[in-house]
Amino acid sequence: MAKLKVAVLISARGSNMQSLVHACSAPGFPAEIVCVLSNNLEAAGLKFAAENAIPTRVIDHRDFENREAFDAKLTEFLASIDVDLICLAGFMRLLTPEFVNRWQDKILNIHPSLLPAFKGLHVHERAIESGARFTGCTVHFVRPEMDEGPIITQAVVPIHQTDTPEALAARILEQEHLIYPLALKLVAENRVKIHGAVVLIEAADEQHHALLNPKVEGF
């Protein structure tokens, strides 16, 4: 079976991109990263990608007069390399509805909270200030609304009473690096089925049970 062709979009160091690169390098992994694209020429993740023999591309959003023109260029390039899936990994640009709809069910994103809680920015500060006992991270399909879309994988992280936003973010990032490759693997194996706003996982591994949301029937 041909591997799923993936483009990863970053704006900075792209630590989640790096976790995907490592996962895709494993024998038998069902996806391959065919390009790392950034809107920022100075993104540190571009160097990592190049060092791992992955083609890179920069499309600077500042070269375009509006979001629509920028996103149109993204689509033109991604279509030209025939990608099957787009993984957002710290890509700090809001995508237009036109772009999202063009790539319907072909864009994954990772967010550092247990969606639908704490959408948007300053997530860790807000989680601590809320008094919540748990937070975490989520991989989901992208929809035009910010931080919306069917959830594929999640991981739960406790909030300690002594936590700073930085300490909490570091612990959550460790889990992000686990659940993003898992979500990509499930999608690449064609085991992810979208039913309305809900994802069902076919033949889920019991060891990953706690990371799958919603719970797969029979587990």
Rank of each mutant, 00 (worst) to 15 (best):
A2S: 15
A2W: 10
L4Q: 11
V6Y: 01
V6N: 01
V6K: 00
L9I: 12
L9G: 11
A12S: 15
M17Y: 08
Q18Y: 05
C24I: 01
C24W: 00
S25V: 04
S25C: 09
A26D: 12
A26I: 12
P27S: 14
P30Y: 01
P30A: 05
P30G: 07
P30T: 08
A31C: 07
A31Y: 01
I33S: 03
V34E: 06
S38H: 05
S38K: 06
N39W: 04
N40Y: 04
N40F: 03
L41P: 02
L41A: 11
L41E: 03
L41H: 02
E42W: 01
E42K: 05
A44N: 14
G45W: 04
G45H: 05
L46Y: 03
F48E: 10
F48K: 00
A50P: 12
N52T: 10
N52F: 09
I54T: 07
P55A: 12
P55H: 14
V58F: 01
V58A: 01
I59G: 00
H61K: 08
R62Q: 12
E65D: 10
R67V: 00
A69D: 11
L74K: 04
L74V: 11
I81R: 00
D82A: 13
D82V: 07
D82N: 14
L85Q: 02
L85N: 02
F91R: 00
F91V: 03
M92R: 08
M92L: 15
R93S: 06
T96E: 08
T96D: 10
F99R: 01
V100A: 00
N101Y: 04
W103A: 06
Q104N: 06
D105M: 02
I107H: 02
L108G: 01
H111S: 05
P112M: 09
L114M: 09
L115W: 02
A117E: 15
G120P: 00
L121S: 10
V123F: 03
E125M: 09
S130D: 11
T135S: 13
T135G: 09
G136A: 04
C137S: 02
V139F: 07
F141Y: 14
R143P: 05
R143W: 05
G149I: 03
P150E: 11
I152S: 03
Q154V: 08
A155T: 04
I159G: 11
H160G: 13
Q161M: 15
Q161T: 15
Q161G: 15
T162Y: 15
D163C: 11
T164I: 10
E166H: 06
A169M: 07
A170W: 03
R171I: 14
I172R: 06
I172Y: 05
L173Y: 02
L173G: 05
H177W: 13
I179G: 03
L182F: 10
A183H: 02
A183C: 08
L184N: 07
V187D: 10
E189Q: 13
N190F: 09
N190E: 15
G196C: 01
V198F: 02
L200Q: 15
E202F: 07
E202L: 12
A203F: 06
A204C: 04
E206R: 05
L211A: 08
N213T: 13
K215P: 13
V216Q: 10
G218V: 09
F219H: 14
